[in-house]
Amino acid sequence: MERVAKGLPREPELPPSRGPLSASVAGYLRHARRLPDHAAIGDAAPFGDDLQLALHLCYELHYRGFAGVDADREWDPELLRVRAALERPFLAALRTGASRHEHADDALDELLVEPVDGHGITHFLQDEGELWHLREYAAQRSVYHLKEADPHAWVLPRLWGRAKAGMAAVEFDEYGAGRAERVHARMFADLMTDLELDPAYGHYVYASGAEALAVVNLMSLFGLHRALRGALVGHFAAVETTSSPGSRRLARAMRRIGAGPAAEHFYREHVEADAVHEQIVRREVVAGLLEEEPQLDGDVAFGVDATGYLEERLADRLLAAWRAGESSLRTSLSTSPRTSLHPSV
């Protein structure tokens, strides 16, 4: 199989460990014998670096895997048992900490109100973001955007009727509607190139904090479990509903600092695309699913709430670091040759 040819990425290297759990999962993937025991997992912080990285390592075997790791590890029963043990405290902490609504409609309606003087992360980047902020933001978001729409594709076989048709239509759009250069993951790689970041899949996992990994682990958790299909749909609806206004602010930020045409285009495309996707997901996917399976109403609401909760944790970390003038990453990025560039507009 041709692997290094243009655009087709190689598997990423295993990232450095962050504690005993991630160290033993990484060690096991490299053919060491010992996996973490369940007591050690119980002692770990559910949203902490060590557990989140360990979970990320387990999940990545279902996407692109890692260099030097046997692809069959994806279905290694011992590893799956450990993955389940890592998922339990993560899911339990989300159920306890994040749940705010009983019904999908209530959870989603709340997202439709746009505060005039919002102060979220996209507001910060729009109003005062500098090149280094945008590079840090893109580096951490790349953990998801370089596999944009992939975790959501897993839900397709679990849906039926309007929900399946709507979900497939939106996914088709995310995957470029048959045009490789319009695949959203590819467009994000082009954005990274504009920002002089390395667009290789998984490259910035080492630098991404627990909060950034948790946002992506949530999608994998919901995507890989049929039992959580309602939560996956809720998660997707939350992302599509909040994306359009946020993308408009990010497009402005990219334009203001003169990031480049691909960087601006990625977010401009998301303003229009997600205004459509929001409508389809709400009317066809969420409504269609709940028509077929009304008992999933609470799970859809949980998916929306969990997404907002983890996004807020990520925003808090980034904004706290940036307001203190510090890097939000575990390891700061090497300085861009263009850091001295002044805004072009």
Partner: peptide
């Protein structure tokens, strides 16, 4: 696009495409 959202509130900054500016 397989489906387009046409702005009807005339507030869109991407007119004629919807950019969710109709939101409350």
């Amino acid at each position: 696009r397989f489906c387009v959202a046409l702005c009807t509130c005339r507030r869109s900054r991407a007119y004629p495409w919807c950019d969710t500016s109709h939101r409350q």
